[in-house]
Computed example of a mutant assay.
Amino acid sequence: MHHSLLSLLLALGLSGCAAKSLSTTPTPTGTARPAASTPAASAANRGEDSRSNSDEEAEALAAAPIYFTLDSATLTPDAQDRLERLARALRQRPDSRVTVSGHTCELGTTEYNLALGQRRADIVRTYLVRLGVEPKRIGVVSYGEERPAEEGSVEKNRRAEFSFRLSEQAQAGAR
């Protein structure tokens, strides 16, 4: 069980980022942009087999955050690809749970940054649910600017991070 969780965490960290939005994600001007395809369709179009992911890939996906641009909760194409792989890994491990934490850089007020961090975590959760991960398995939290990845690096602080646990671990911690 611990090896599976470690594998999932490592697989989540090896992917990068770019720029594309969900159909329901507002642009900075407040208008919605249509997505080129649904998350499931884009994975199907690539002909991917859900059993082709290795534990190493799951571990890599878990280690790296998803980055956002200034004042944005829009998922990039690379972020969407990473979330598709993460969703496959989560579906293959039904006992696992994930918490998505939304973060911002220090620009803006504390209240604004907490709200933006929440929007970032929520959009990641929404995307994972669209990809077939049960909503009850995904928690969200916003830290705003309070937990920087790197002091003074606004680009690295605009992110969503993942923490994972198995249901047995969550139940043991609640006792």
Rank of each mutant, 00 (worst) to 15 (best):
L9F: 02
R125C: 03
L12F: 09
K20Q: 14
S4Y: 08
A79M: 07
T27Q: 15
S15T: 04
S52C: 02
V100P: 01
D49H: 09
D55R: 11
E168A: 13
S153N: 15
T27D: 14
Y127R: 15
K156M: 08
T104V: 03
A18F: 04
D95K: 10
R82L: 07
T69H: 12
Y127S: 09
R130D: 15
L61F: 04
E161Q: 12
A19G: 11
E146A: 14
L22V: 04
Q80W: 02
S21N: 04
E111F: 04
L86W: 06
S23H: 09
R46A: 15
M1V: 08
R158D: 06
E168R: 13
D78W: 06
V98Q: 09
P65M: 01
D55E: 12
S153H: 07
A63V: 05
E150I: 01
D49T: 13
E155M: 08
A172V: 08
V140F: 01
I123A: 12
A170Y: 09
G102T: 07
E145P: 01
L83R: 02
D81A: 12
E134V: 05
A43R: 15
R130S: 15
G102N: 06
L83N: 06
P26L: 10
E161H: 08
D81Y: 08
L83T: 06
Y67Q: 11
G173I: 03
T74N: 14
V154R: 13
P26F: 01
A63P: 00
E106T: 13
E59Q: 14
E145M: 07
D78E: 14
L166V: 04
C105K: 04
T25Y: 01
L14W: 01
Y112N: 05
Y127I: 00
A79P: 01
G132M: 06
H2L: 12
V129S: 00
V129L: 05
E111W: 00
Q169C: 01
